[in-house]
Design a protein around this nucleic acid. Structure first.
Lengths: 238, 238
DNA sequence: GCTTTCTGGTGATTCCCGTCACATTCCGGG
DNA sequence: CCCGGAATGTGACGGGAATCACCAGAAAGC
């Protein structure tokens, strides 16, 4: 059992399940120690905002616990959620490295903890530890591919139902049990938010849930979602 | 007057109008010389394909003359054009650097010339000349922002007419003359291709042209497009 | 020259989904 | 425990765009 407070990057790293994928894990001991010196940890309540689209980048946030919603908005108030970030993700990296304004707004949707690293300290750190700079380049490249996937989804998928199926598939646990076993997923998003992820309206999402339930693709038990068959969903995406 | 053949990166650089923005321009003389050793130049006819989505990356292409269409396709044959590349652009950089498959297909839509740099030679070159590696990082970051803009357009813009207006605005010459002067643009795309850029159908694009002409936003003279008022287009994007 | 293919224009029809409206359920706080 | 706001379910309606169909020019090929 670990303490909810006083957690640092090192602790987080040692307990995080997919360490090798994460930016600041598996680093040399001196690098990690330096990292712990320049980072500061804070706890954020639900709906706290880490940064806002258009702001000058102050630095990056490394999410330890909780979930963060990344979104961008049009001038008319329409909102598009581009990603739900999970523990281990680095937020604001592109903006901080390139010194462009943050391109998204980051808002906590589940309370949690994040380490903040100011921009200048991060840049110095990167110059000092070349190993980490390489990780950053890789992460930037990965961000690009994620963005590219999003473009394909938005541009090539016409119907809301297809996009919805795609979204559900992306929620399937990494290590899916069996080819077509069921999967239970904790759902923390509102229909409104799902609508903002797939570019449709709340009502349509509501109807999609009904449809998918009727088609036996889906089952809702309180706040957990039961996906019944991966192949069936895949057939909808085609 | 410069020779259409025998052009090399150095020549291109010396004559290209926006040198500082381009990856391999304004480099030190030794770097440029090395670059000229590892590159090979070829001429491509219209509809020649430089590389295909999904292929293992062989290297990058630096476009000297002509235009290239970058596109991605869904399994059902639907196509999305993500960008029309112009002379000076570097194609296939992300894939080559990160060693992921090319994420788009690159096809010449206007015949032209390109320099090819094989992957291994490029990587060695980057290790040797740190100045260039920095340029590459900047270019990758720029690519990311371009992708992000595309996401915003696709995700936040609902109606085809709005997307069409946005596309026309993106065609306005960099140095627009006066606030609301006219602009003449050479149009080389078919309606079909425009449709693939804004995610709609050929018929709808055809109708959009009619509408915009009727609304005095637009005029077509042969293959040149006359845009009549930038503010009016901007109002359509809202 | 002619034919064939590609491109662009336009009508008719269908239907999906956004919008509006309202009822219902859920949930947290006093 | 009840109350109020948020989240959800559902019907009715209408419009905009995809689809289908066909034709007219333009360009390209033989």
């Amino acid at each position: 059992m670990r303490a909810p407070y006083g957690l640092n990057i090192l602790d987080n790293c040692l307990t995080c399940p997919v360490r090798e994928e994460h930016l600041f894990c598996n680093l040399s001991v001196p690098a990690l120690q330096r990292l712990n010196e320049i980072k500061s940890t804070a706890v954020y309540p639900k709906s706290a905002v880490l940064f806002i689209e258009g702001q000058q980048p102050r630095g990056v946030f490394v999410l330890c616990t909780g979930k963060v919603k990344l979104s961008t908005s049009s001038s008319e108030g329409k909102t598009l959620i581009t990603k739900i970030s999970e523990p281990g993700d680095v937020l604001g990296l592109n903006a901080t490295i390139s010194n462009h304004p943050y391109e998204v707004t980051a808002e906590m949707i589940e309370p949690g903890q994040a380490n903040f690293i100011p921009r200048d300290a991060l840049l110095r750190f990167l110059r000092e530890y070349g190993e980490v700079a390489l990780r950053v380049a890789e992460q930037l490249s990965r961000n690009y591919y994620t963005a590219y996937e999003e473009i394909r989804t938005l541009g090539l998928t016409s119907s809301p139902s297809e996009k919805f199926a795609k979204l559900l598939l992306s929620w399937y646990p990494e290590k899916a049990q069996g080819a077509n076993g069921q999967a239970q997923i904790k759902m923390t998003l509102t229909h409104e938010e799902i609508a903002e992820m797939i570019g449709t309206t709340r009502e349509t999402v509501s109807r999609l849930f009904s449809d998918f339930k009727k088609k036996q693709l889906l089952q809702v038990k309180g706040s957990t979602l039961v996906l019944r068959s991966r192949p069936a969903l895949e057939k909808m995406v085609h």
